[in-house]
Amino acid sequence: MLHILTVDDSKMARKRLLSTLDTFNIPHKTYEEDDGVKALKALEDSPINLLITDLEMPNMDGVELIKEVRKTNLSLNIIVITTVANEQIKQLLKSDRFTYFMKKPIDTKILETYLKKVQHQIGSKDA
């Protein structure tokens, strides 16, 4: 089962994303936080296997969060959903094969395909 942590300072964005996830035929449990600091704590406390994060956030932004996560976990699947179509950030994340970049508003079909891929990958690991 997918344990998905969504991190976004917009409550509305989190709500919409969780509704979208519920429309997929993928068994999952969701956790939500509104900044990077709280997200790191949630990652320690819960069996998260997919992190979906925004980049622009107070306290700790998405880039810092990813950098912190990668210090201890190189293979956690991460989806970056952001409005910042910033090439520099894309370049920064390009070398990380477990991080996927999506522009807001999210394309639900692409998101579903990616989630199925992650689900398959996690299923293979469990087996």
């Binding site: 917009s10 509305m12 919409r16 956030m57």
Partner: peptide
């Protein structure tokens, strides 16, 4: 009156 993060979300949602 919403937070700017939510307003950004609303702008993008309305546009899409």
């Amino acid at each position: 009156k919403e937070s700017m993060a939510d307003q950004q979300e609303e702008f993008l949602y309305a546009f899409e």
